[in-house]
Amino acid sequence: MTWPNQRPTTGPRESGPHDSPRPPLTPRSGPAGAPGWAIRGTGSHLPRRRVRSEEVSRSLGLDPGWIERRTGIRERRVAADTEASSDLAAHAARRAMADAGIRPDDVGLIVLGTSTPDELGPSTACRVQALLGARHAAAFDVAAACTGFVYGLQSAVGWLATQRGAPPHALVIGVEVYSKFLDPGDRGTAALFGDGAAAAVVGPVPSPYGIGPITLGSDGTRAGDVLIPAGGGRRPASAQTLAERGHTIHMDGRAVRDFIAATFPRLVAEAVDGAGIKPADLALVVPHQPNPALVASLAPDAGLEPAQLAIAGHDVGNIGAASLPYALDTALRARPSAPGDLVLLAGFGAGLTWGHTIVTWPPS
């Protein structure tokens, strides 16, 4: 099932469809009654400009329906010339804070995942902190590509668990403006990528609800599968790198497809085995979705029913670190999770990187 794209910009989320909370199934770390951390609000933001796949197909000399047939992507959003990652991220963060019912002064940490920062330094998270007026927040970026949101959750949970005296909420944001880093003539990337941002507020919740153990991994031997090869210290910007389009995304499409096909079912298996549950016990599975059609087709291999998957990439394409939190926000707007629901977040991307966690959804 594809979750409909219903995203109010402000206001609290309605209560779930169940009459009473379901006892959590996921084992929680720590003693009974110990406080934990949960996602307390979500929000997302897309640029105004829509570019339909028919238009991209024609520009690549392809049949108008080629992209949608192969990927399921109908359109994507494209940032304006004056919009950078921090602008999109700040909009998404404001919506997540409104959903959680908190103010900028309640935020102690901003951790932002992106592969398309405003500049090489400072961190884009610091730009977002200034835009939000979150004066008490520490801020930094994580560079884990499309797994950036899951890596950011780990950073947020670790920080919240050890801080004393800081505001007890963290903003975890994923954002990309890939359109500024695309070769419009490369069908392998121009067909897939779009722009967007999504965010989540992480805050305290009583045990046994909250974010379960987070498992992260990487394989740096395959860093060349997807990358922007120029602009860093190894290949600084020059006339030659510009001529070679070294500042655009380069991707080995076949290698990436094989990685997705092998990794998503493995992450589901690892998560449910570690929690001592079955795939059918998951109320919602939110994967990164670089190719919505491909990821949806992997549900049987992962032991899942199509209705368990939150697929929202049809109307945005691959928005990188924002892909997973955008799908989560879209799914929750369409059908709020009930207390005790088990929600699996599964990310994977360039680096290569991957990560997963099961969230025992808290009461509102």
Rank of each mutant, 00 (worst) to 15 (best):
G355Y: 11
V359L: 01
P168R: 11
R335N: 11
R22H: 15
S57L: 12
E176I: 09
R103W: 14
G196E: 08
G72S: 08
G72T: 03
G220T: 14
Q129I: 04
G72Q: 10
D273I: 01
D99C: 10
L216S: 01
R103L: 14
G158E: 06
P21N: 03
A200V: 00
G30T: 05
P204R: 11
P23Y: 06
V177P: 06
L352K: 03
C146V: 06
C126T: 15
G11V: 07
M97F: 10
G61Q: 07
D19V: 11
L25H: 06
G340P: 04
R40T: 14
G36M: 03
P104W: 07
G11D: 12
P31M: 05
R245V: 12
A275K: 04
A269G: 04
F264T: 02
A255Y: 12
G246Y: 13
A89D: 02
R135W: 13
F140I: 05
T215Q: 02
G196T: 06
E68R: 06
R28E: 02
V142F: 07
G232A: 03
E55H: 07
G355D: 00
P362F: 05
V295R: 08
A190M: 15
A255I: 10
Q240K: 12
T2S: 12
P31K: 08
A199K: 05
G152L: 04
I102R: 11
I211K: 01
L267K: 07
L120P: 15
L192Y: 05
T42K: 08
Y178E: 01
A334N: 05
A283G: 08
G355N: 09
F181T: 12
G121L: 15
V316D: 09
G33Y: 13
T9G: 14
G72R: 01
D81L: 15
